[in-house]
Design a protein around this nucleic acid. Structure first.
Length: 957
RNA sequence: GCCGUCUUAGCUCAGCGGUAGAGCACUCGCUUCACACGCGAUAGGUCAGAAGUUCAAAUCUUCUAGACGGCACCA
């Protein structure tokens, strides 16, 4: 078989995905076992405007590893993909396109046309990330792909809205909200970020007090002078003696013709600023509260684009807020009413997406009351510990702390792209909330109605994602909804997915999902809301576990972002190192902690992929006549028990060679007659499989990767292949069968992490077919992704073999060390003398050929005592046996002395520590007996080794 | 202000009560018939600092310093 010398990831990546997908391997229906347990994950929907970033790549890798692992174990697995409609982002992109291409605004073309274009935009550009997910190898069930604006999911949104409204959990009201003047929409608290500006100013404005007997002016401090045009009071603390007498009097508000009251309010901190606060109830949340307490007028002085309106006065009307600020200050200065301007470090609220300074403003919006749902979520955590966060600390604490302080959620958005709010108004402003316009009209007694112009926050529909994706559409499911909105019907159906009978049962089959994998940044925004809404509407947990991934940071240690230009494109990494290398690298850093990006580390795994490729290449070059799963020459392995006979469809007489779930038994436990390397590698493989399964079940992906890396590279390549090389190249079919069996199972263990490479190689192995599959996939085609995931069998963990092998390895390493330190040319053969008796001697004797090969020796002399010339380099094996390599003419006595002294020094350090501990009476009395015994044994051994090395040094003199 | 995380080899990170680990980089030696994306052999750390608990602390507790994250406040 011709196999290229180096692994070319591209070739493998292009060969398998389509076949996997079209063969239905990603669908839960591929599993034919009626009793199979389910395992499900729903993807956090990336937004349709997005493209793959490193955070996605990390999370998708984790999800795919889990899904592929469980699928191979025989679970009925579903990983459900989808995207969300990203209200503001899409709205902005479409508006931009409109402006650039036609010089028009959304208003120019109207709502209906705008929405039509938004759908067109989504069709054209919204698939970027789903295409990239195919490249990633993500084994998602594309037939169940969902979009938050699909018909069924839209029904769910309307249904939930109506129910919450009917039950009094949704209300509409005038509140101070976060307003983005650029996007011209309200934002929830979570969509507002803080930005610190060092160049802020605090302005001190003097307000004249006309009443007799008072000071002439009351000075207030403000960071937003322009809002003074909307002041309707000045507040002071009633306990503040400076101002107490002013309460009840009034000030004349400069630049306006208004006289406004001075009120006393405990909110005011006498220590801050001047101790007097201007009160602008329509433009500040705290002032709003003061306003309510004192029944103040709420005077709105800005338009929705943050320019001043008519109420601000003719002089200011039409000015942008920052221009108005300058002008207000200018005019105060002219009037002699500007006391001073201090430098002031200020934190400004900015729009998360466009960074525009958010304006707090009084506005009529829809809200969800969160208190009851919050209590449900807290109850779930308290009584059932759900969700279980991984890592638990600190996320569980942050999550509950956030819930405890939860405020009501603003859900209306002044956009066109999204789910239009299912509320209708009659000419008198009465509101009718219903699932459809027809229903609303019925409620309104047939009056003419107009639907609320706003849409719902994208996160409102995302909050239903856990169950709306499985076909839940509310009580209205199945009813005709063709008149439900203003969208054209063809648009809805064009993008809708017909829910099959199977997927309607999905809700029962797959909810709660087993795990949610997501980033820290959306625990509140999404995870918590999904938990609450799922509990409320389907009375189920949304998911059992939440894996919170760390953030992948740029090389500068800062989060990747376009503005910092420190981003790393996963696609570039795929091109440069291969998808598999990138995936297993990402899994290796999936500890939950943040991680700084480093290209060099992916190279490690690109090299690893190449190592796997070449190890397989070597095995295949020498595989004539080899049979995987056949431990003994000439004997076709019969499955021992279970799985062979459990598979239907194979005539008994043609039963193919196959393996059982436990790893291939290469020897019987009773008589360890098999060669040591074989017993040893079987033990290593089983230990690795056991630990990999354990690590994955604990979501310790980095541990699993490390175990596999070292098993494959160190145990399998560096030792097993090297030890068996001679037999294999000589055409020994038993040996090549064995090595292929080990390799085949190693590939299966690696498959969840490196799907393309392992599939590519596995299919090249002789005899691999669906015979290796879990019974649940008996009829599926040949693919490693449906082969059994090795569970590992503790009965094949062979401590005896591991200890024996350690002696062989130790011997080889000692000789190699001597060769290297003494500058012996690789081509020169040496003799090895070992003073060993009993079992140790027989172990070395049994592995003579291997020791000689790997230590590049032509003789191995085993005797009761060393009988070698003085010109020999010596060492001590663990266990105390002495070893010597005669080096006539080659030895440098000074160097040899130094080498021995170095070894003595190392051992001596340890000996002293041991002595310290063992001479401590407290330790001997109070530490566990086994521990004390262990140290005593260790001390004995080291003492022996030191003595031997010392006598070697003495012999050199 | 409140809550939390991090500080381990030159770099990026594991380990989280019982002899300090990995990859990369560094040093030395190798065209050894799978792989130079390789093979072999070394070197490199008072685990940020201080105090405490314990027979035993990188690991638990407290404090200090530095880096960072979240929340709240911000006239």
């Amino acid at each position: 078989m011709e196999i290229p010398k180096a692994y070319d990831p591209k070739q493998a990546e292009e060969s398998h995905y389509e076949r996997w997908e079209t063969s239905g391997f990603f669908k839960p229906e591929i599993n034919k076992d009626p009793d199979a347990e389910k395992y499900s994950i729903v993807i956090p929907p990336p937004n349709v405007t997005g493209s793959l970033h490193m955070g996605h790549a990390l999370q998708h890798t984790i999800m795919d590893v889990l899904i592929r692992w469980k699928r191979m174990q025989g679970f009925r697995t579903l990983w459900l993909p989808g995207t969300d409609h990203a209200g503001i982002s899409v709205q902005r992109k479409v508006a931009e396109q409109l402006r650039e291409e036609e010089g028009k605004t959304p208003i120019d073309i109207g709502r209906e046309e705008f929405i039509r274009r938004a759908w067109a935009w989504k069709e054209q550009y919204g698939n970027t990330i789903t295409e990239q997910m195919r490249r990633e190898g993500a084994s998602v069930d594309w037939s169940r792909h969902r979009f938050t604006m699909d018909e069924s999911l839209s029904k769910a949104v309307r249904s939930v809205f109506v129910t919450l409204y009917d039950e009094g959990w949704i209300y509409k009201g005038l509140r101070i909200v976060n307003w983005c003047p650029k996007d011209k929409t309200v934002l929830s608290d979570l969509e507002v970020k803080e930005e610190t500006r060092k160049d802020g100013k605090l302005y001190y404005l003097k307000y004249p007090v006309p009443q007799a007997g008072s000071p002439l002016y009351l000075t207030v401090a403000t960071t937003r002078p322009e809002t003074m045009l909307g002041d309707t009071a000045v507040a002071v603390n009633p306990k503040d003696e400076r101002y107490r007498d002013l309460i009840g009097k009034s000030i004349v508000l400069p630049l306006t013709d208004r006289e406004i009251p001075i009120v006393g309010d405990e909110y005011v901190d006498p220590e801050f600023g001047t101790g007097a606060v201007k009160v602008t109830p329509a433009h500040d949340p705290n002032d709003y509260q003061i306003g309510l307490r004192h029944d103040l007028e709420q005077l709105l002085v800005m338009n929705d684009d943050a320019t001043m309106n008519a109420a601000a006065g003719a002089e200011f009307e039409g000015l942008d807020r920052f221009k108005a600020r300058e002008k207000v200050i200018e005019r105060f200065d002219e009037l002699g009413l500007l006391e001073k301007i201090d430098d002031y470090e200020i934190t400004l609220p900015v729009c998360e997406r466009c960074k525009t300074v958010v304006e707090p403003i009084l506005s009529d919006q829809w809200f969800v009351k969160m208190d009851e749902m919050r209590d449900m979520a807290l109850e779930l955590m308290r009584t059932e510990g759900v969700p279980h966060f991984s890592p638990q600390v600190p996320h569980e604490k942050v999550y509950t702390a956030w819930l405890e302080n939860l405020k009501d959620w603003t859900i209306s958005r002044q956009l066109w792209w999204g789910h239009q709010i299912p509320a209708w108004y009659d000419s008198e402003g009465n509101v009718f909330v219903a699932r459809t316009e027809r229903e609303a009209k019925e409620k309104a007694g047939g009056r003419e109605l107009k639907q609320d112009a706003d849409v719902l926050d994208t996160w409102f529909s995302s909050g239903l994602w856990a169950f709306s994706t499985f076909g839940w559409a509310g009580e209205e499911a199945g009813r005709d909804t063709s008149e439900s909105g203003e969208k054209g019907e063809e648009q809805l159906t064009a993008d809708s997915h017909q829910l099959s009978a199977i997927s309607k049962n999905d809700l029962d089959s797959f909810l709660p999902t087993d795990v949610l994998v997501t980033g820290r940044d959306i625990i509140f925004l999404w995870v918590s809301r999904m938990i609450m809404l799922t509990k409320k509407f389907v009375d189920k947990k949304a998911f059992e576990d939440v894996i919170v991934t760390g953030t992948v940071l740029g090389k500068d240690g800062k989060p990747m972002s376009k503005s910092r230009k420190n981003g790393v494109d996963p696609i570039e990494m795929f091109d440069k190192f291969g998808v598999d290398a990138t995936r297993i690298y990402l899994a290796s850093i999936a500890t939950g902690a943040d991680i700084k990006w480093n290209d060099l580390l992916i190279e490690t795994y690109r090299n690893f992929a190449n190592k796997i490729w070449n190890a397989t290449r070597f095995c295949l070059m020498n595989s004539d006549g080899a049979i995987i799963g056949s431990p003994h020459e000439g004997e076709v392995a019969k499955g021992r028990g279970g799985s062979a006979s459990a598979v239907e469809g194979f005539p008994a007489e043609e039963e193919p060679p196959r393996q059982e779930k436990a790893l291939t038994p290469l020897h019987s436990k009773e008589g360890s007659y098999e060669p040591l390397p074989d017993r040893w590698i079987v033990s290593r493989l089983n230990v690795t499989a056991l630990n990999v399964n354990k690590a994955l079940s604990r979501y310790e992906f980095h541990t699993a990767v490390s175990l596999l890396y070292h098993f494959f590279w160190d145990d399998f390549c560096d030792w097993y292949i090297e030890l068996k090389k001679d037999e294999i190249t000589a055409g020994d079919v038993v040996s090549s069968s064995r090595i292929l069996s080990i390799l085949e199972q190693a590939l299966r263990l690696l498959h969840p992490f490196m799907p393309y490479l392992t599939e590519e190689l596995w299919l090249k192995l002789p005899g691999t077919s669906n015979a290796f599959h879990n019974a649940a996939y008996a009829d599926a085609g040949a693919t490693i992704m449906l082969a059994d995931f090795p569970a590992g069998d503790p009965t094949f963990v062979d401590e005896q073999a591991e200890a024996e092998m350690q002696l062989v390895i130790d011997t080889i390493k000692r000789v190699r060390n001597i060769r290297s330190e003494m500058n012996i040319k690789p081509s020169d053969r040496v003799s090895i003398h070992v003073a060993a008796a009993g079992e140790m001697r027989s172990i070395l004797a049994a592995n003579e050929a291997q020791i000689k090969k790997l230590a590049r020796a032509d003789r191995l002399v085993l005797a009761d005592s060393l009988d070698v010339p003085k010109a020999s380099a010596k060492a001590v094996l663990s266990g105390g046996a002495e070893i010597a390599v005669p080096l006539e003419g080659l030895i440098d006595f000074d160097k040899e002395r130094e080498r021995l002294q170095n070894q003595i020094a190392k051992l001596d350090t340890e000996l002293q520590r041991l002595n310290g501990q063992l001479s401590n009476a407290n330790f001997v009395e109070r530490a566990p007996v086994e521990k004390v015994q262990e140290l005593r044994g260790r001390k004995e051994e080291i003492t022996g080794q030191i003595a031997a090395l010392r006598s070697n040094v003495a012999a050199l003199a």
